[in-house]
Design a protein around this nucleic acid. Sequence first.
RNA 1: CGGGGCGUGGCUCAGCCUGGUAGAGCGCCUGGUUCGGGACCAGGAGGCCGGAGGUUCGAAUCCUCUCGCCCCGACCA
Length: 566
Amino acid sequence: MQWSNLFIPTLRETPAEAEVPSHRLLLRAGYIRQLSAGIYSYLFLAQRSLLKITAIVREEMDAIGGQEMLLPALHPAEIWQESGRWDVMGANLFRLKDRWQRDLCLGMTHEEVMTSIARGELRSYKQLPQIWYQIQTKFRDEPRPKSGLLRVRQFIMKDSYSFDLDAAGLDAAYDKHYKAYCRIFDRCGLKYSVVEADSGAMGGSQSHEFMVSADAGEDFIAICDACGYAANLEKAVSAASAPAAADPEGDLTPEAFHTPGRKTIAEVGEFTGLPQTSQMKSLVMNADGKLLLVMLRGDHQLSETKFAAATVAKEIRQANADEIREAFGADAGSLGPVDVKNLRILADTALEGRRNMISGANRDDYHFRHVTPGEDFKAEFRDLRQAAAGDGCASCGAPLALKKTIELGHIFKLGYKYSESMGLNVLTAEGGEVPVIMGSYGIGIERVLSCAIEQSHDKDGMALPAAIAPFAVVVTPVNANDPAQRKAAEEIYEGCRALGLDALLDDRDERPGVKFKDADLIGIPFRITVGKKLAQGMVEFVERRTRASVDVPVAEAAAAVRAKCP
RNA sequence: CGGGGCGUGGCUCAGCCUGGUAGAGCGCCUGGUUCGGGACCAGGAGGCCGGAGGUUCGAAUCCUCUCGCCCCGACCA
């Protein structure tokens, strides 16, 4: 294509609203324009890139036997009510009414629709297994859209669903997806980690996330460089670091002492001269309306995900000040586990075996010293804390690192959640009726592009992987008014096209600086510059990422690009 | 939902405190000179200052309300 005919609205300056690199560059490079908060128009360049990404996704999904469909974005409330998610999803679900005042919503995922198709049609084990997928626009009324295309209210997602007779079948479908996702992200030129994840509201037993490390991300993962263990921070298991000070020996009795105005762990630590690791943190939680006391080491943080899993509660939150006062007779800041009779107490495993620690005394402005978990109070010991940087890896003991990441893809073993709630059953060989076991697998298409930019950019712009760049190569005559340059550039451009390359001819009557800057900005991986060396029959072949430049004869330029592209 | 910030030509911003009906740079259009990393000269187009109401002889500027956008936190497959 000829640049002079195209709509590529590059900006010299960064629009004020953009903060993260991918957002800045998508705007500056003329890929996207914002219509409203979290809602973007994808212009020519973005669309080309997204089409390349979806083509790769399609190829790999088809390769594992996936069958592409396209399902409605507009759903009747009934199917969401059946699965129970009409209520669970709350304000995140876009809801609307039709002219008859019937409730509808815009699909945020498609488990319900897929299951409703399957239950009408899948009747026999002989029809299993199935993998169905689609590439569809999804809608989520995010409380806080942000960071360009990273968190938006309308986005494209590849979602697939597997239907199997039994757990072994689900394992196989899950494994196929796992491998297909690796191939997809490899082909897209991304560096990523696969981590164990919480299956959360989706239900189900096993789940992995495909994460790209980036400062713009909003998820944390814990990762062990030594053995490869990696998990979402919500779920990561670790060996707690050693306490900073040894516990006092002996079978000591809790002893109250006055701590006027000392409420936080840090304040009590300063007051007692003891490190945070010698203290216990008492958190009061409300799980489905019941209060629980949670004990953690002073320097640890509660993982609400682990807590929710331990209590099997649907709704958890921190208890409010009134609830705390009523149950403990003291305010937060002076709470502790000693003599707590009527509440269930959960304690983190890092407290198991510790002795003679500090805790609140359930009396304002008093704490206890010499509190021994298991002796001075009874508790159920569970892994409840969030892993911290420097904790030991649970598998090999090497220190864990925390990384900020963007979630690109997520695969779930759903189990029977939807087949049971929505009545998707098949007959077995024995003639009995059993629910179908399902899996659900998503990829955020725009996030692939955003992550590629986050991973591959410099001060001049994007440096996209060739597989997903809107064009593979741009042919740039330095002086568009020089007939010889023009002719050579056109020949090379046609040569590239003949070799099946997506080529762009920068035929604009602009100064060379402008053309180079724009080419760098929009991230075309290769550039052929037709300039003064044309007199010797040579042109320059420049690689965007490395800036490496080699002179090649005009007749060989197209082939040189071809050799570098996937 | 809590906290903070911002809405002035396509973009970046000044003007607002101390009211007198709008500016710069970039971009855009025309002509000319240029042509290897965002050229130069000359001429030109483009803004009811987010919206509504109020104060005032007079509001981009002061007051009230409202809408929108961004950031931090909470929340979040």
